[in-house]
Each structure stands twice: as structure tokens, then as C-alpha cells.
């Protein structure tokens, strides 16, 4: 096969898509998770059910949506309910997979999206949990998609908005959280998982052309690594064609080369 050029965002979408298995129920958000989910549905997971916290279920939009309550999703979906119904599905144990973004994610996969600084009078007030805490508490598996930058990967987040593995092994169970928590972190540099014994973040694969040093320089804690290090599989020509020509033809979330 000839080598095909691709962008890091395309690779992230493909790596995230790989986490959705066929026939699963996944709750997804805007941006790369939406692109990844629709790619999965068009390739290896045609029977996956995709829904949004807005209450829109199994939407087949004519055009790419730019929000979870976008009218383009409402226009062609199997059910347009409400937020409470959508999130009730999580607590009812119906949801296999959730995708989350993050302002900050720490070595245990805990996410901060609430404040930078003190809670009462913060330096920066961020938007808050939204449905992220619900998804991370209750989806059977969670995949975090985040740009790999030092300030976004602190050892400990300033405020735990959304539970990862809290402070390590057994912490989620002690807190009474039902889902397994984050299983993958997909960035523009690498794919990471979590060590079974410590629940600390662990490198799984480096994207083609990325060095381990590059990942370490952009991570604010000691990332667990086991040799030999694998390489993230490159997107196939079929996947790239779908992304570029059908799923995000205007390059809204995946900038074109």
C-alpha cells in the first residue's frame, strides 16, 4: 500500500473511532468525538447507537452538526427527547461508551472543567461539568480526547469535576461509581491507557513520527511506559476518504492538509 499523508486530527479521529465496537450504545459530544463516532458507524460499527445528552438519539444529519442540540441532528433522528431522558439511560446502565474532552486531565484521568484557582473566587471560571460527570460516573467505558499540552496534563487537577480513577486502585468502587472510568486517552501525540495495578496513565502507542521525549515534555507527570513502544496504526485510505469527503467535507473539525 502506498503511503498516504494524513493530519494528526485525522489520526485522532481514527484512533477514537477504534474504541467503538459494533452494536454498542455510545453517548457523544461535539467536535472530534462526533467525527470519530460517525466514522466508526460508517466502517466497523454500523449497528452502534449514537446519542447526545440533548436527548437526540440515532441522528443521521445531512450536514455535520456543530452542537449536541443542533437542529441538523433533530431534523433526521429516531428520537428527540430531553436531557433527563438521555442521562437516565446512563444511570439505567444502558450506555457502553462515552467520549469526553477536558480542560485539564491528571495521571488518574480525573478531569477539571470547573475552575482555575480557588472555587469561590477563581482566577478563571470555566463552563462546568455539563453531562461529563454523569458520563464518567456511569458509562461502562470512557475515552478522553484532549490536545497533548503540558498545562493540560498536570499531576493533579485543581478541581475534580469529572471522575477518572480518583486517587488510584479501588477508589471508584469506594465512591460507589458504577462505570469502569476512563480506559483511553487519545491526544495529538499518543494513545494512552491506565495501568491495572495503579490506575495511573500509561502509554499505549505513539503516533507515527512522534518521539517518547516529545510526549514526556508535554506531560506534567511521570507517564508509565513499557517497552517496546507500539506505533498508533495510520488511517487507511478508506477512512481518510470518508472523513474528508463525507463526514467533515468542509474541514470544520478536521483541518484539511
Amino acid at each position: 500500500m502506498a503511503t498516504v499523508e494524513f493530519t494528526r486530527e485525522e489520526l485522532m479521529a481514527v484512533a477514537a473511532a477504534a474504541e467503538i465496537r459494533d452494536s454498542e450504545v455510545a453517548i457523544i459530544g461535539t467536535g472530534l468525538p462526533m467525527i470519530a463516532s460517525y466514522l466508526a458507524k460508517r466502517t466497523h460499527a454500523p449497528s452502534a447507537s449514537l446519542f447526545f445528552e440533548s436527548g437526540i438519539i440515532d441522528a443521521f444529519p445531512r450536514d455535520l452538526a456543530t452542537g449536541v442540540g443542533d437542529f441538523r441532528l433533530m431534523s433526521n433522528c429516531v428520537k428527540a427527547s430531553g436531557l433527563y431522558y438521555a442521562l437516565s439511560l446512563l444511570q439505567g446502565g444502558r450506555v457502553d461508551l462515552g467520549f469526553l474532552g477536558a480542560a485539564e486531565v491528571d495521571q488518574y484521568g480525573n478531569i477539571n472543567s470547573t475552575v482555575i484557582g480557588n472555587y469561590i473566587k477563581p482566577q478563571v471560571r470555566l463552563p462546568g461539568s455539563g453531562g461529563a460527570n454523569d458520563i464518567a460516573s456511569l458509562a461502562k467505558r470512557v475515552v478522553i480526547i484532549v490536545p497533548h499540552q503540558l498545562r493540560k496534563f498536570p499531576e493533579r487537577v485543581q478541581y475534580i469535576t469529572t471522575p477518572g480513577h480518583l486517587d488510584g486502585v479501588g477508589a471508584r468502587e469506594r465512591a460507589g461509581l458504577r462505570g469502569a472510568g476512563p480506559v483511553r486517552v487519545v491526544t495529538n501525540l499518543a494513545v494512552m491507557g491506565f495501568d491495572d495495578e495503579t490506575k495511573r496513565m500509561k502509554l499505549r502507542s505513539l503516533h507515527p513520527g512522534v518521539s517518547l521525549d516529545q510526549v514526556r515534555e508535554n506531560t506534567g507527570f511521570e507517564l508509565l511506559v513499557t517497552e517496546p513502544i507500539e506505533e498508533t496504526p495510520a488511517p487507511t485510505p478508506e477512512q481518510l476518504k470518508l472523513l474528508r469527503e463525507e463526514i467533515d467535507p468542509d474541514g470544520i473539525y478536521i483541518s484539511k492538509k
Partner: peptide, 26 residues
Amino acid sequence: EGYGRCLNFSRGVQEGRIQVEDYSHF
């Protein structure tokens, strides 16, 4: 969505004029 944080609200919280109490959606 598509723009960013709510700036009036964020400023009010950052300046201590608005009290907040966070929840998840559910």
C-alpha cells in the same frame, strides 16, 4: 457553544459578585 465561556457570568464569579454551586447535568 461554538464561541466560548459565558463572559459576563464568568467575570461575575471571578470578581466574587455571583455565588455558584456546581452540579452535573443529571
